Every structure is written in structure tokens, then in C-alpha cells.
Computed example of a mutant assay.
Amino acid sequence: MSVLEKTYRERIRPEMRAARGYANVNEVPRLEKVVINCCVGSAPDIKAALEEAMTDLAAITGQRPVKTKAKKSISNFKLRKGQEIGCKVTLRGRRMYEFVERLIWAALPRVRDFRGLSPHGFDKMGNYTFGIRDHTVFPEIEIENVKRMFGFDVTMVTTARSVEEARDLLARIGLPFAGMRREQRAATA
């Protein structure tokens, strides 16, 4: 069991249950899965770029990515329907918690000029999406072996029923949202 998962079960879940008045422990919002999506569709040598992205994404997540295909043709981008243009990984359970730990404690502090994650990345269902522009912020990537930089989107799917519940959960987990003071981050960590 990872440190974050243990912290969620022993500290965050009881705190949220008391603060929000949940009758049942299963009502408390939790992380369901984390989806990491990378698209290399505009690269000139798309097959080589896709293989590099898959290798690096596998190193970052510890799980083999799945290739994604274009849903429709776009002539301006030289895309054909069905062409492989990206890859994605869906993390659940132990690997999900370990990835979120590394994201919060190792990767995000290495982002240049980082001022926090946008608090506006929530959808109506309480899921949160943000982008990382440079994959080399993860300690698993050896910078001298990187031929090209790529970014990816991270979507955190929660069981929250509202944006407020999801924001509260993710802040307690330790995601550093922009506008949050250092004392608030320390209190939630």
C-alpha cells in the first residue's frame, strides 16, 4: 500500500466524512482512476515519435500504453481517419496512487515557473484534467536519452458528485492549486 493510499484511508476519508457529514464511508469521494493521454499527431515522422512516446509513457507510469487512433480525417493536419496518432494509459489502484505521489512530490516541483494547477480544470462530474508540457520533469526519464519533448494530459476521475467535493478531495490529497497559500497546502498535506 502506498503512502498516499494509506493517508487517504486513515486521515483524508475520516476528515472528509466529518467535515461534510457523510452518513456512510462509501459516500466519501475517492480517486477512481487516472488517465494519461499523449498525442503526437502533428510530428513529421509520426511512427518514430509514437514509439518514443509509448516508451517514455511506459517508464513514467509503469504500465504499457495503448495506441489511440484519429476519429476523423483533417486535411490541414495531414490526418486520416484510423491513423495511429497517440497513446494513453489508464491507472487504477496501487499504480494510480504511486503515480499521483510521484506527480505531486517529484514532477510538479520540477516544472519551470510553476505557480500551481489551474482550479478551472474540473468538469460537471467532478473530474479534473490538466496538462504537462514537458515529460522530462518525471525522474524516470533520462534527459540525455530524450530525442524529442512531448506533453500529455492527466485526467483524474473521482467519485465526487460536485466540483466542490472533487476540489476538496484533490486539495486534501495534495494537488497544489493556483491561488492556494503555502499554509493551506501544508495543512492539506
Rank of each mutant, 00 (worst) to 15 (best):
S75L: 11
Q83W: 00
G93V: 07
R95C: 08
L117W: 04
Q63Y: 06
L117E: 03
S118R: 05
K78Y: 00
K78E: 06
F122N: 00
G62W: 09
G93Y: 07
A106L: 15
N76C: 14
I60F: 06
R110K: 15
T90H: 04
K72W: 04
K88H: 14
F122M: 02
E84M: 03
I104E: 10
K71A: 08
S73E: 15
G86P: 02
K78T: 02
S73T: 15
L57D: 05
A107L: 08
N76R: 13
V100Q: 06
S75V: 13
C87F: 00
R110F: 02
A107V: 10
K67S: 10
F77Q: 02
S75K: 10
T61M: 10
P119C: 04
A58M: 12
F114M: 05
G116D: 04
L103H: 06
F77R: 01
E98Q: 14
S75N: 11
R95S: 13
T61E: 08
I85Y: 05
L79E: 00
K78P: 00
C87Y: 00
I85F: 05
C87E: 07
A58S: 15
G82F: 00
F99V: 09
A59F: 07
G93F: 09
R112V: 13
I104H: 09
K72E: 11
K71C: 03
S75W: 01
Y97E: 10
V89I: 11
A107I: 10
V111L: 12
L57F: 08
A70W: 03
